[in-house]
Design a protein around this nucleic acid. Structure first.
Lengths: 336, 336
DNA sequence: TTGAAAGCGCTAACAG
DNA sequence: CTGTTAGCGCTTTCAA
């Protein structure tokens, strides 16, 4: 019951297993219409479902896309997950996910044990470390993975020979800085997220370049590192000396989550947003719209990026182009 | 390269495949220490990783937990996903996820094709329909799944003979209504989410009961259905006739996401929150803390529920107890 | 305890 | 175009 196998279907249809396999799971036409129909009918009658595990054993690769990501609870990644899952499904693949909890070492172990699943594609989401000591390890694991026919893709930078989908972080930063400068902001503070991550450093660099180009350079001591989370933004603003904040008219956070935490902290310090101090973020996660005031940000095609990752992996021809962001001005940065 | 098989390990260690299998993937003690060491050493030397697909073929079941959920982008579900993934990992299982896009029919198809993966556990997240025509279909699929040794669990109600993890939605509703009544609110409006869903109806019922018990019953025409999303909350409030809103001092949304959308809509209508109208939600997703003003809600142990689901499925002894919520009062419902 | 050998369900040459 | 027949890598009786 519930366990009809290919052999059962073949017998029921009066054909060989090979033929049954060809019509049920094989590629395109190659079987006479009559046989095809008989097999299909038998399969339906028996409620046949292919045993994917057996298929994977025989083929050497499973029909799975594995998404490795730091934290599914972060909207940045859940958007990406959405895209990966959509594209995988369209390609007839199943999505598996594994969480690294933002731990590079764990990521390597994960890739190692995931290899056992024989996924067709592994999408590694989350920014790479500029010079992680795990990078080499990771590359070794991926080599082994490629050895069995798998295709790794990075979603945001590759520190390896394998392809990646990238965002134009620097450009986005420049554009945002330029846009807010145009609005009249001159004394900006940057909440730069963790140092060492490629993504955050690119964004910070872009912001500073943009501001500098407009004649309002951001001094080093106004570029603050913080945890890549709501709490990171909150804590950093909360701990800031009064005199620093007094001279600032705009906080530029390198992610919306950080910005949202920062906004709450600003308010908890008795400052009005945006009257006393304005704020902007990056990513345009859904929560940015519901922030009060709504958050100025750079919209990144997150879902699309997830989709692109699996496409690039599947048809490895396509050259991975980097994805641009769009500045979205909202009330958190009014004309000043 | 990267493709050491059990046979390779056995040969390298000078033992039979059976022995190698026993030490590497089998249960506990049964192999002499010396052999055990030799196998382990050989495996390490060869960088052996078990082929999970082959294992699943041989065993009939894979080492996978499959999570079926409506939308990973919704924080309610991403919290649950977090818990499932954690517990699965602790049990040495891999988590797979599939998105239904809130479509019951799709859910059934998904379960059907997921069956092919032979997951050890399938967690079906998301509220059941009170009387969905797909319920019977779903049950049929699950029967087949159980037939191959799988274990289904529902996360929020079971319309089938299989276990479920439940929240005490009604009780939570009663407590919330009672709490806000204690704060001085008397004329409440309910944003009840979609009708037909068990969860939403339970919450609505609880709220109404609680309010009624306090002597401030909520009339039928102040219980509004809406989409289970931020936009659902926004749209419903936006479309409300002025005279209805005038008589309301508190909006009770059956989810935080709805509440957050509603809050924005209220504000867009020129109302002050909470001065003119207060608001509360359900779930206590992270965004509730960052809402302005911070949102009163009922905290539900979402991550914990996800964990419980896999535990219940794995050791089917434990009787699935239902999980209680805790009212969390914040500034969106000040003493009035 | 250990090993030989028969599968698990499916695929993919290779003939016919 | 169809069927025969080896595997795929691992598990698991069953004897030794």
């Amino acid at each position: 019951m519930g366990t009809a196998t290919l052999a059962d279907v073949a017998r029921e249809a009066g054909v060989s297993m090979a033929t049954a396999s060809r019509v049920l799971n094989g590629g395109e036409r190659k079987v006479a219409q009559e046989y095809r129909d008989r097999v299909l009918a038998a399969a339906a009658r028996l409620d046949y479902t292919a045993n994917l595990a057996a298929q994977a054993t025989a083929r050497g690769l499973s029909t799975t896309v594995t998404l490795v990501l730091p934290d599914i609870t972060d909207p940045y990644f859940s958007m990406i997950a959405m895209g990966v899952s959509e594209a995988a499904e369209e390609a007839g693949l199943i999505t598996t996910m594994a969480l690294t909890r933002r731990d590079a070492e764990r990521e390597v172990h994960l890739v190692r044990s995931l290899r056992g699943q024989r996924p067709r594609v592994i999408v590694l989401a989350g920014s790479r470390q500029r010079s992680g000591h795990m990078n080499a390890e990771l590359e070794r694991e991926l080599e082994a993975y490629v050895g069995i026919g798998g295709r790794p893709v990075f979603l945001s930078q590759s520190t390896t020979p394998y392809p990646s989908i990238d965002f134009r972080n620097e450009q986005a930063g420049r554009e945002l800085a330029t846009a807010v400068h145009g609005l009249g902001y001159r004394r900006m503070l940057v909440l730069g997220g963790p140092t060492g991550l490629v993504t955050t450093e690119e964004r910070v660099a872009g912001l500073r370049e943009g501001a500098a180009a407009c004649g309002a350079p951001i001094p080093d001591d106004l570029v603050l590192a913080c945890d890549l989370s709501r709490d990171g933004g909150y804590a950093t603003i909360a701990a800031l000396p009064e005199e620093v904040l007094e001279h600032v008219d705009l906080v530029l956070a390198i992610s919306d989550v950080i910005a949202i935490g920062a906004m709450t902290a600003l308010r908890d310090r008795g400052l009005r947003v945006p009257e006393d101090i304005a704020i902007a973020g990056f990513d345009d996660v859904p929560a940015a719209r519901d922030a009060v005031p709504p958050l100025t940000t750079v919209r990144l095609p997150l879902v699309e990026a997830g989709r692109a990752a699996v496409h690039v992996a599947l048809q490895d021809g396509r050259p991975p182009a980097s994805l641009a962001g769009t500045v979205v001005l909202r009330e958190s940065t009014p004309q000043r």
